[in-house]
Deep mutational scan, measured.
Amino acid sequence: MASQGTKRSYEQMETDGERQNATEIRASVGKMIDGIGRFYIQMCTELKLSDYEGRLIQNSLTIERMVLSAFDERRNKYLEEHPSAGKDPKKTGGPIYKRVDRKWMRELVLYDKEEIRRIWRQANNGDDATAGLTHMMIWHSNLNDTTYQRTRALVRTGMDPRMCSLMQGSTLPRRSGAAGAAVKGVGTMVMELIRMIKRGINDRNFWRGENGRKTRSAYERMCNILKGKFQTAAQRAMMDQVRESRNPGNAEIEDLIFLARSALILRGSVAHKSCLPACVYGPAVASGYDFEKEGYSLVGIDPFKLLQNSQVYSLIRPNENPAHKSQLVWMACNSAAFEDLRVLSFIRGTKVSPRGKLSTRGVQIASNENMDAMESSTLELRSRYWAIRTRSGGNTNQQRASAGQISVQPAFSVQRNLPFDKPTIMAAFTGNTEGRTSDMRAEIIRMMEGAKPEEMSFQGRGVFELSDERAANPIVPSFDMSNEGSYFFGDNAEEYDN
């Protein structure tokens, strides 16, 4: 993207840094990872977990959730003011799984939030270390993106479920800051804005008074975040219109849905970061690795190297396929839920299948599930090659597409044709070009129609051997075009429920 120079890199967003050079960025990201790792080690000690239990991804998720809940100030305040039966607002906890007599047992633990905050700050040299908290939120978000298709949420806001490739980060909490905003897809931002506008339509006082002023500035800020994701002048001009509207209503909703559809071809720039579970960072720190000293990046080879040398386990339900569970977590670790499966298959070195073909449910185990038949197995999170994460949407291309997802959002900077089903997408653009945004709409449609099938995206960008740390010898991959490109292809993934 041309304006790259004016933006802070995501590592800076990730670490609240002012302008830093590459070495400083690597050190501050490393410091953040160190903090998460030290916190995780301490929690495993508190909970008396064995090494194996500490490497269980379900335990990692519970521990991450506990610290996120302990620092969720708004919710904590709300819980104190609106006490609900049987919930102690000062405590947080969740299921911890232990191996007892050759069987997995679930144990519900409860801790004072104050105590968890103390352990977290102690692991982070006394700081609140917001960057580390956001990092864990993005890992949870990436896992949700890989596990669930947001059909219901899309339909509720009037969008087409086939636009799911635009929904990265749709389950990120509001408090995820600049680093969170960077990884949100165009569809996620559109959905947040539509929800806001709908509230304004239904509630006369939404934009009024002292609160209304705050609401208005939040609305304009979200519009600017979305505008910054678009790469064409016409899309940005249309966002200006939406932002400046005196009284946002149905016309703005129409414009936003139009823009979301246009992003299936004229893709937005959305950041991709490899955020790993805390149970990967903990053992690495415990083994003596100093992330701050060595430096770390979320968008280069580092996460690949770390996963190459990590042992992570997962509980497996009786009829689940461990290899499929591994694929789910591998995609989440690489922030690749909406990437082209052919690119992923090449990088991973084994075939990556669409969601609907995987015999696996989510990673988390519900409290009512029976533990008797639970097994555990090693997650295979290694890769054959590594590639640089991208934040450009890439230019655009036609490809055989599917009944489910009709476009992709690249996660890796790797040369390819970008699949999208042009006739299906263009069919949504018939007729409606009147109104105050008509010239911009016409211009956007013209650009979409001009998108050429034979153009290559990320020209000359390749993948790298894991021994090639400096990215000196790019390998331009070859793809098996007979395979499906979309992950949520004609899909039956479970729906995400809060």
Results as ranks from 00 to 15, higher is better:
S353A: 11
V414Q: 05
L341F: 07
D468R: 00
A2N: 00
A2L: 00
S84C: 13
N321G: 03
V414Y: 00
A22Q: 04
G17H: 01
R150D: 06
R436D: 09
R55N: 06
A237G: 15
E115I: 06
A337I: 02
K87L: 01
T424N: 13
S28A: 13
K214H: 15
L344H: 05
S383L: 00
R261V: 04
Y10P: 06
I388A: 05
N397L: 07
L418E: 00
D101H: 06
R246N: 10
N21M: 15
F338H: 12
T350P: 00
R106M: 10
N125T: 10
R389E: 11
R162A: 08
P318Y: 08
T437Q: 03
D145W: 09
E73T: 15
R317C: 08
M66T: 09
N211I: 08
V285S: 11
A2R: 01
Q364C: 12
Y487L: 01
S269D: 09
S486G: 00
T215D: 07
C223Y: 09
N432V: 10
N211P: 07
T390E: 01
R204E: 04
T396C: 08
A234K: 06
T378W: 00
E380S: 05
N483T: 04
G126D: 03
M13Y: 11
N321H: 09
S287D: 10
Q42V: 06
G177H: 08
G54N: 10
C223Q: 12
P173Q: 15
R461D: 03
K103E: 11
I257H: 07
R355K: 14
A387S: 14
N319A: 12
N395V: 02
Y219C: 09
E114D: 14
E14Q: 06
D145V: 06
E469R: 04
S262I: 06
R99S: 11
Y219T: 14
G126S: 12
D340P: 01
V408I: 06
G282T: 07
E465M: 14
T188I: 07
T157A: 14
R221C: 04
S217Y: 04
S482W: 00
F39L: 03
M159W: 03
E449G: 07
F420L: 13
P477Y: 00
R391T: 03
E254R: 07
S3I: 11
D497G: 12
L61A: 03
K325E: 11
I41G: 13
S176V: 04
A181V: 02
I194G: 00
H135Y: 09
T188Q: 09
S69N: 12
R162C: 05
G356D: 09
S9A: 15
D439C: 02
F464N: 01
P410A: 15
S392D: 04
T157Y: 01
A27K: 15
E81M: 06
R216W: 11
I316G: 02
I225Q: 07
R174H: 04
A22H: 07
T424K: 00
S84I: 13
V183G: 03
D51K: 00
R8C: 04
R246Y: 14
E192C: 11
A218Y: 06
N395Q: 10
R106P: 04
K90R: 15
H272M: 05
Q149I: 06
D72C: 09
S326D: 11
A178T: 10
R382Y: 07
T134K: 00
L172S: 05
S367T: 15
I116F: 04
I347A: 13
K273L: 04
G460C: 13
L344F: 10
R99G: 11
R400C: 08
N321V: 14
M66F: 14
S165L: 01
D421I: 12
D101C: 03
T62Q: 02
A218C: 11
P277R: 10
V329M: 15
Y40E: 01
A332P: 04
R65T: 07
P83T: 10
I41S: 14
L298T: 03
I138K: 11
F230D: 03
P477S: 01
E80Q: 11
G300F: 09
T6Y: 00
G356N: 09
Y385G: 04
N395L: 01
F304W: 00
Y10M: 06
P283V: 12
T6K: 00
G93S: 09
T134Q: 02
S359W: 05
I444D: 04
Q149K: 11
G5V: 00
V242F: 05
K422D: 01
A493K: 11
E434K: 12
K90I: 13
I253D: 09
P419T: 04
R174Y: 01
D290C: 08
K87P: 04
L315P: 03
A411T: 15
I475F: 07
E192M: 11
D421L: 14
T232P: 06
T437I: 05
I194A: 09
P318D: 06
F71S: 07
W120K: 09
W139F: 14
T424V: 14
D51Y: 04
T437W: 00
A387K: 04
F412A: 01
R384T: 02
D72H: 08
N483R: 00
E495N: 14
Y281Q: 11
T396D: 00
N368K: 14
N473R: 15
A337K: 05
G93Y: 04
Q364W: 02
T157C: 14
Q241S: 05
S28G: 14
E294K: 13
I365V: 11
A471K: 01
Q12I: 06
H82N: 10
Y52G: 12
T6L: 00
K98D: 01
D340E: 11
A451W: 10
T6W: 03
G180R: 06
P453I: 01
Q415G: 10
E80W: 07
L418F: 01
R19Q: 02
V29I: 15
D203T: 04
S383Y: 02
V463D: 10
G17F: 00
S486D: 01
R382F: 02
R75H: 07
Q415P: 00
S310D: 00
E294H: 13
N21G: 04
Y10R: 00
R416A: 03
D372K: 11
N247L: 03
L110R: 08
A131K: 00
A85C: 10
K214D: 00
T437Y: 01
P248R: 03
A153F: 08
V363A: 14
T350S: 13
T390F: 05
C275H: 05
P453A: 08
G356Y: 08
R38P: 08
A234E: 06
N432M: 09
G17E: 02
G169A: 13
N125K: 06
G228E: 13
P277N: 08
R389M: 03
E455F: 04
M105H: 14
R99D: 04
G185T: 03
R361V: 14
G288A: 13
E53T: 09
A336T: 14
L264H: 10
Y313I: 08
G404P: 02
L344S: 13
F304T: 10
G300Y: 04
W120T: 02
K293N: 10
K198W: 04
L276F: 09
F412T: 00
S478R: 11
N125A: 06
V414C: 15
G460K: 14
C164S: 13
N498A: 04
S438F: 05
I116S: 01
N432W: 02
L154M: 13
I201W: 13
H82Y: 15
T23D: 00
K103N: 14
R236Y: 01
M196Q: 15
A493Y: 13
R204Y: 10
N144D: 06
G393I: 02
L166F: 01
S413I: 03
K227L: 09
M66R: 11
K422F: 11
F412W: 03
S262V: 11
C44H: 03
P474R: 15
S383Q: 14
N397C: 11
T378A: 15
S392E: 03
E494K: 15
N211F: 09
Q327E: 11
P322D: 11
T188F: 03
E292Q: 13
K113N: 08
I57V: 15
T15Y: 01
Q409L: 00
G180E: 09
D203F: 00
M426V: 15
T146D: 08
Y296P: 10
M196G: 12
N250W: 12
T171R: 01
N125V: 06
T232A: 08
I138T: 08
A401R: 15
F464M: 00
M189P: 01
V343R: 00
M137V: 10
T378R: 15
